[in-house]
């Protein structure tokens, strides 16, 4: 279940998307996400579809790998689709008892589903093609101006990067502790809500203790390797815009303008 979250998982292949500067990818992702919220026309979604799938193609990340990220939002997807489907007033298509499905409801539900799926796919392209470190580098550099207002940008970026590194480890650990406690007769599945919550104690306590221990170990290892905050740090791969980044900016801008224009269309 937790394993299915692809966000934060880097897929190592060489592609044009991988080679882009993380700042480019951040900006492009922002614009892409924004564009999805700005349109609700068929034409807009058609353009978004072409754009999204071209980028997926270019990224050389297998499609089935991307789709895995969707499993995590399955519940959200089903919920929002059914809300829209059953609760939107309008021209009734058919109804059984108190359930009414309207033409408008079907339409919004469909758009909602596509929008959600596209949102997740779009953001997973960024995380799948950008190493978490590059991503945090990109954030650190793009948000660098905030340092002037006393925001500890470097520290936040470092924290994010470390969190990403330890997510898979802690997921594995959760699985192991869960199995170990099951072997001692623990039951994580049956019972009511309160019982279930109580059953989590034998899982959560060891997990927290382990997380703290790892944090202590890691901070020591970082110190031993001369970490002393962001000051005076250099980079092995400093961020530099290349020719491809300029092309990418042009493409995403054209895409964005096209999406804006679709709002003027009647369908």
């Amino acid at each position: 279940m937790l394993r299915d979250i692809t966000i934060g998982q880097y897929y190592p292949v060489a592609s044009r998307i991988h080679a882009l500067d993380p700042r480019t990818k951040l900006a492009a992702t922002m614009l892409y996400l924004l564009s999805l919220f700005m349109t609700d026309s068929v034409a807009g979604y058609a353009i978004a579809t072409i754009f999204l799938f071209s980028v997926i193609r270019l990224s050389r990340v297998p499609f089935r790998f991307m789709v895995r990220g969707l499993k995590a939002i399955m519940i959200l997807l089903v919920l929002s689709v059914s809300f829209n489907l059953f609760l939107t007033p309008g021209t009734e298509l058919f109804g059984i008892g108190f359930i009414h499905i309207t033409y408008e409801g079907l339409f919004t539900a469909l758009f909602m589903a596509v929008r959600l799926v596209y949102l997740v796919l779009g953001s997973s392209i960024m995380t799948l093609t950008t190493t978490p470190n590059a991503l945090t580098d990109g954030l650190e550099k793009s948000l660098g101006f905030m340092k002037r207002f006393g925001v500890p940008v470097h520290e936040i970026a470092m924290m994010m990067s470390i969190a990403l590194r330890f997510i898979p480890i802690l997921v594995e650990e959760t699985d192991k502790i869960m199995k170990a406690q099951t072997a001692r007769g623990a039951d994580f599945e049956s019972g009511g809500l309160i019982q279930k919550a109580r059953a989590m104690v034998p899982l959560l306590v060891p997990l927290f203790i382990s997380a703290f221990r790892r944090a202590l170990d890691l901070s020591m290892a970082m110190e031993a390797r001369c970490y002393h905050g962001g000051e005076g740090r250099t980079k092995m791969r400093p961020l530099r815009y290349g020719k491809n980044d300029m092309h990418a900016y042009v493409i995403i801008l054209i895409y964005f303008i096209l999406m804006l224009l679709t709002n003027l269309l009647p369908f």
Binding site: E173, Q181, V205, P206
Partner: peptide, 13 residues
């Protein structure tokens, strides 16, 4: 059939 996992002390709570 008792099963003791690797590093079982990590399950104490």
């Amino acid at each position: 059939v008792g099963l003791v996992f690797q590093y079982p002390e990590y399950q104490l709570f």
